[in-house]
Design a protein around this nucleic acid. Structure first.
Length: 800
DNA sequence: TTAGGCTTGG
């Protein structure tokens, strides 16, 4: 990718638009733009059936329901992982005063490929039209009070049409969510005013917490103790099936917002328990740290909410100063102490089914020596840097029983908080028959005192503090000639993860011999320059694949949006209005009537057609957009034409000038020289490129444009990703993405692996990337942009 | 439905 091209293609502004006016069908979930006119997709015989009138006895053949998605569950794999299931709740649009009536929301269960497509194409807040469903009694009616029936969508009859919401949705939840049809104004009650049996929204500061642990039922449970300026302290119990969807609390002092939780008296104290539709947002409690909720999901958050979080932080800092005690560094640990420990994992080893060893450090040295814990050769995952001066610096933590599962999921390089770690003193034989006191560290089984461990996000202020301590420690050890600690960047997560955290899914294809640098370094550099970095994808946009595709003219370098089908219908409609007969001397023509008496379709085929084996060229006059889509097959190229001053002319404005099966090709408005059709003879190759050249039109190529937010712990950086004929990150051509479901699924799968839809950044793999930093000038102003170049996803043998 | 804080004992 040349810098020139970068300068010419200023696509940045295109990406700043929240919604793009393009659509591509992802079968069998169809996308649409206008929520009021979605029924146009359906056969005219289909009738609407309002949700509140739907019963088990309703005749559903030929019917459809329409509603807003108020809850979208995760995509579940059943059995051998090849079958899918997804549960959603839709709510019909009824006048506000009628919303008290029952049965306006209904559970929808989708199966198979439809569930998978729904998961990708539909978001909470979108409007959907469902058809081809079956009705069954709702087994959860007593619990959720939604609707007596459930809708099941399975098999080839079932269809979903979706119209994306135009604004972020309101409300979110780990377990389930209720999205109100109008923006909700939440009322938060002080913790000293809770009434038994009421459903409330509250803000609170966490004074105690237990990480999620499995219950005897189906859920994980986490317990919190909350307080607020009212002085009340209430216990709160969270039930949620997925550990990841529990509120992310890392330390006492964190701030939490809870929506739709139930107040209950238990043992003489008021408690809060989650109920259907609950949601939570959590925030770091540090005064002055960014007010960013720890969630990847959409949420409703106003300026007033931001203010509340900041006020609670200030209040807690003054009134609950005991909470602000930092975790204990290794240098301050004393024998027999139970303490919370923030550290980085260097290596781990499974000792037996009930015990995992973690080798960790926090950049400080313990006052007591550590015992040596033997590890079977080859069982240690991770690397311990060589050196002679590591005494009392790297601690062995023995993790027991219920915590082993969490420990086994950790990867070297991660930052951890270990809660209620026990410093166990042991007397061992020292030199010359002396006895020496050493400290070993045990995370015992059970959850008393909040015992447990979790990975911390790199955005946490505690991690920033830890990173500074690690950096400073590494600097101090620089003088140790025998050590590998003198690489100052060693202690950053990205360097440590090199070859340690799983396999890197990307590979650089360039020949640069560049030293790897941090994103902070890239950000402080001046363009033009190339860099090699290692980073994670913190977020990306657009989220929907069909919003990433654009049209690009390699001649004039302009980028255009792809018109949506409705726009194309309108443009065709105008162009085919004039159906006066038009004959070309070079062609054989055939005219047929259509259902519309005012319109005829004429097909013109060159009498000197290219060789029989080549795809045929058929010029189609008077056809609507839908006609052409219907007529087009892989066997021939179709060129829509109109009559203009007695001659055959191409349709003007932005419509495809060439159709072949599901593929549609556009010409560049600026660079196409010809308006009228001339005979096409002697075509040597029957492909879109040679045909467009012969027709005198400049073919536009499909390109894929995305923006990644990269993070390597030192900084975040927005980088553009362009998939075109030169750069091929996904190994999927943008042209294929425009029409092939297989290509669309492949790319979605890759994006899900780079940034799991429901995961935290910690679960994102580290990517080796080549970055190009360049300046784009416009009206005397210059902006610095960054682009991922020369980088490809590694292909697995199965994908090839 | 589940849990309803309050130290292992390696």
């Amino acid at each position: 990718m040349s810098t020139d091209k970068n300068c010419l293609i200023d696509i940045w502004h295109l990406l700043s638009c929240t919604w793009f006016k393009i659509q591509i069908e992802i079968m069998p979930v169809y996308t649409d733009q206008d929520p009021l006119n979605m029924e146009k997709w359906l056969p005219k015989t289909r009738q609407s059936i309002p949700l509140h009138t739907l019963t088990e006895q309703s005749e559903c053949a030929g019917k459809y329901v329409k509603g807003k998605v108020v809850f979208k569950g995760p995509l579940l794999h059943i059995g051998n992982h090849l079958k899918y299931l997804l549960k959603s709740v839709i709510q019909e649009d009824v006048p506000k005063q009628s919303q008290a009536s029952n049965n306006i929301s209904i559970n929808v269960v989708l199966f198979g490929g439809l569930a998978k497509d729904f998961s990708h194409a539909v978001n909470q807040g979108d409007t959907v039209v469902l058809s081809g469903f079956t009705v069954s009694p709702s087994p959860t009616f007593m619990k959720d009070q939604l609707h007596h029936c459930n809708l099941h969508l399975d098999g080839t009859e079932a269809n979903v049409h979706v119209c994306a919401a135009t604004a972020p949705t309101v409300g979110t939840s780990g377990a389930s969510a209720t999205v109100l049809s109008a923006p909700a104004k939440y009322v938060y009650v002080p913790l000293n005013t809770l009434k038994h049996g009421s459903q409330v929204n509250v803000y609170g500061v966490v004074t105690f917490f237990k990480l999620p642990f499995p219950t005897k039922g189906t859920d994980y449970c986490s317990t919190l103790k909350l307080t607020d300026p009212s002085g009340a302290t209430v216990s709160c119990t969270i039930f949620c099936e997925n550990q990841e969807n529990h509120p992310k609390i890392f330390k006492a002092g964190d701030v939490i917002r809870l929506h739709r939780v139930k107040a209950q008296m238990f043992g003489g104290s008021m408690t809060l328990v989650t109920c259907w539709g609950w949601s939570a947002l959590t925030f770091d409690g540090t005064v002055g740290s960014p007010v960013v909720p720890r969630t990847d999901k959409s949420f409703h958050f106003s300026e007033e909410d931001r203010h509340r979080v900041m006020e609670l932080r200030k209040w807690a800092a003054h009134e609950l100063s005991v909470l602000r005690e930092p975790t204990v560094p290794l240098s301050a640990v004393v024998p027999r102490q139970y303490f919370d420990f923030t550290c980085q994992l260097l290596a781990k080893a499974c000792l037996d089914s009930a015990c995992t060893l973690l080798k960790v450090w926090d950049g400080t040295r313990c006052r007591y020596p550590f015992p040596t814990i033997p590890v079977e050769p080859g069982t240690l995952e991770g690397e311990i840097p060589a050196g002679t001066n590591t005494q009392n610096l790297i601690a062995d933590v023995l993790v027991y029983d219920n915590h082993v599962e969490v420990a086994q999921a950790l990867k070297p390089g991660m930052f951890l908080c270990i809660y209620n770690l026990h410093a166990v003193p042991q007397m061992v034989a020292g030199e010359a028959c002396t006895v020496q006191e050493v400290l070993s560290f045990h995370l015992h089984g059970g959850t008393s005192y909040g015992r447990g461990l979790c990975a911390l996000p790199t955005s946490s202020p505690d991690v920033s503090k830890l990173q500074r301590a690690l950096q400073s420690c590494a600097e101090q050890m620089e003088g140790d000639m025998d050590s590998s600690w003198d690489d100052l960047t060693w202690c950053t997560a990205s360097q440590l993860s090199n070859g340690v955290i799983g396999e890197c899914p990307t590979v650089r294809k360039c020949t640069h011999t560049l030293q790897k640098v941090s994103l902070a370094h890239v950000k402080s550099s001046s363009p033009p320059e190339m860099f090699h970095v290692k980073a994670q994808v913190k977020s990306y946009q657009p989220k929907r694949l069909y919003q990433c595709l654009k049209l690009f003219c390699s001649q004039c370098k302009t980028i255009e949006e792809i018109p949506d089908p409705e726009t194309l219908r309108a443009r065709f409609g105008q162009a085919v209005r004039d159906t006066r007969p038009c004959r070309a001397a070079w062609a054989d023509s055939l005219t047929t009537d259509t259902e519309d008496p005012s319109r005829q379709i004429t097909l013109h085929v060159s009498s000197k057609s290219p060789a029989d084996s080549d795809p045929k060229l058929i010029f189609v006059q008077g056809a609507s957009f839908d006609d052409i889509c219907h007529l087009s097959s892989d066997e021939e190229f179709m060129i829509p034409v109109k009559s203009s001053r007695g001659k055959l002319a191409f349709l003007d404005s932005m419509v495809p000038f060439l159709f072949r099966g599901k593929r549609q090709f556009y010409g560049c408005r600026q660079c196409s020289v010809r308006k009228f059709v001339k005979s096409v003879e002697g075509l040597e190759e029957g492909n879109e490129k040679s045909i467009s050249e012969a027709l005198g039109l400049q073919l536009m190529e499909y390109v894929l444009v995305m923006k990644f937010e990269l993070d390597d712990g030192t900084a975040t950086l927005e980088a553009l990703l362009l998939e075109d004929s030169k750069d091929n990150f996904f190994h999927v051509s943008a042209d294929d993405l425009s029409h092939s479901q297989e290509a669309q699924e492949k790319m979605q799968k890759i994006m899900d692996s780079l940034h799991p839809p429901d995961g935290s950044t910690l679960q994102c793999p580290w990517l080796e990337l080549c970055l190009s930093l360049y300046a784009v000038g416009e009206n005397g102003k210059s902006e610095v942009h960054c682009q991922i170049v020369n980088t490809q996803i590694k292909e697995s043998p199965v994908d090839r």
